[in-house]
Simulated assay, not measured.
Amino acid sequence: MSLTIEIPAQYGYVLGTVTALFFVNTYHSLLTGSYRKAAKIAYPNCYASAEQAAKEPAAFQFNCAQRAHANFIENLPPVIANILIAGIKFPVLSASLGAAWAVSRVLYARGYTRNGPKGRFIGAIHSIFGLAISILSVNTAYSLVKTLW
């Protein structure tokens, strides 16, 4: 038994959104690098020490930028997978939610680095977009599995 999956014509939007996420990652990397340079935190140190961050605002901002970037890359693989899966059935909606997730991750990083941990809430809506994409992905997977029954 085989299953044929048709990719909708609008799937290009899905691929465009996933591609854009790599640029968001680059933004995070550049942001973190600029704060690393300002804080004079040498490689291979991932973070400034707690003592440095308590004394030096630049070190604290670097830690915030680094954490925002780490949080982004922790969430990136499942979001990409879910966008690609959901896009099979819901190409425009999954691409739109993925784009909204990307924008909210930029806002999250900017808020976190400028205003500390409380500043990240400006982009925290990414959680809702991620959940919506996951639900669409589950729906798509269920639809495909259901055809096998």
Rank of each mutant, 00 (worst) to 15 (best):
residue 66 Q to S: 08
residue 62 F to N: 01
residue 111 G to Q: 06
residue 92 V to E: 03
residue 29 S to I: 07
residue 94 S to R: 07
residue 74 E to N: 14
residue 78 P to C: 06
residue 119 G to V: 13
residue 76 L to P: 05
residue 122 I to C: 09
residue 44 P to V: 07
residue 111 G to L: 08
residue 15 L to N: 05
residue 73 I to N: 04
residue 57 P to T: 06
residue 6 E to N: 12
residue 60 F to V: 00
residue 33 G to P: 03
residue 86 A to P: 03
residue 20 A to I: 06
residue 124 A to W: 13
residue 40 K to V: 07
residue 39 A to W: 12
residue 6 E to S: 08
residue 80 I to C: 12
residue 91 P to G: 02
residue 136 L to D: 05
residue 138 V to H: 07
residue 148 L to E: 06
residue 18 V to F: 06
residue 40 K to R: 14
residue 115 N to Y: 15
residue 32 T to M: 13
residue 82 N to R: 03
residue 55 K to S: 09
residue 44 P to L: 09
residue 83 I to V: 15
residue 140 T to S: 13
residue 43 Y to A: 10
residue 103 V to N: 01
residue 33 G to D: 12
residue 62 F to V: 02
residue 100 A to H: 00
residue 87 G to F: 08
residue 17 T to M: 03
residue 56 E to C: 06
residue 123 G to N: 12
residue 139 N to Y: 15
residue 6 E to G: 02
residue 47 Y to Q: 09
residue 115 N to W: 13
residue 100 A to R: 00
residue 10 Q to C: 00
residue 11 Y to R: 03
residue 38 A to D: 13
residue 70 A to Y: 04
residue 125 I to E: 10
residue 112 Y to S: 04
residue 22 F to P: 00
residue 132 A to T: 12
residue 36 R to H: 11
residue 3 L to C: 04
residue 68 A to Q: 05
residue 63 N to D: 10
residue 101 W to D: 00
residue 127 S to P: 00
residue 82 N to C: 15
residue 128 I to M: 15
residue 135 I to Q: 08
residue 29 S to Y: 09
residue 116 G to Q: 10
residue 11 Y to G: 00
residue 1 M to K: 10
residue 138 V to C: 13
residue 27 Y to V: 04
residue 127 S to A: 14
residue 141 A to I: 14
residue 69 H to Y: 10
residue 118 K to C: 03
residue 2 S to H: 10
residue 57 P to L: 06
residue 23 F to V: 04
residue 124 A to Q: 15
residue 40 K to A: 14
residue 53 A to G: 02
residue 113 T to G: 10
residue 102 A to S: 13
residue 68 A to I: 05
residue 120 R to D: 07
residue 16 G to L: 11
residue 113 T to R: 10
residue 36 R to M: 10
residue 51 E to G: 00
residue 111 G to K: 09
residue 70 A to W: 01
residue 108 Y to E: 05
residue 135 I to Y: 12
residue 87 G to V: 07
residue 142 Y to K: 13
residue 122 I to H: 09
residue 112 Y to A: 04
residue 68 A to D: 04
residue 50 A to F: 05
residue 95 A to R: 06
residue 105 R to L: 03
residue 54 A to G: 01
residue 28 H to M: 14
residue 30 L to R: 12
residue 47 Y to P: 05
residue 23 F to N: 02
residue 98 G to V: 02
residue 131 L to A: 14
residue 16 G to F: 08
residue 54 A to F: 03
residue 46 C to V: 10
residue 20 A to M: 12
residue 131 L to D: 01
residue 36 R to I: 09
residue 72 F to A: 07
residue 54 A to Y: 00
residue 20 A to R: 01
residue 148 L to Q: 14
residue 24 V to K: 02
residue 137 S to H: 09
residue 21 L to N: 07
residue 37 K to T: 14
residue 84 L to C: 06
residue 64 C to R: 11
residue 143 S to A: 14
residue 139 N to P: 01
residue 115 N to Q: 13
residue 77 P to A: 10
residue 110 R to M: 10
residue 27 Y to L: 05
residue 5 I to L: 14
residue 77 P to V: 05
residue 78 P to D: 04
residue 139 N to E: 14
residue 22 F to Y: 13
residue 93 L to K: 03
residue 143 S to H: 13
residue 112 Y to C: 05
residue 32 T to D: 10
residue 48 A to S: 09
residue 146 K to S: 11
residue 107 L to F: 12
residue 48 A to K: 08
residue 20 A to K: 03
residue 27 Y to D: 01
residue 129 F to S: 12
residue 10 Q to G: 01
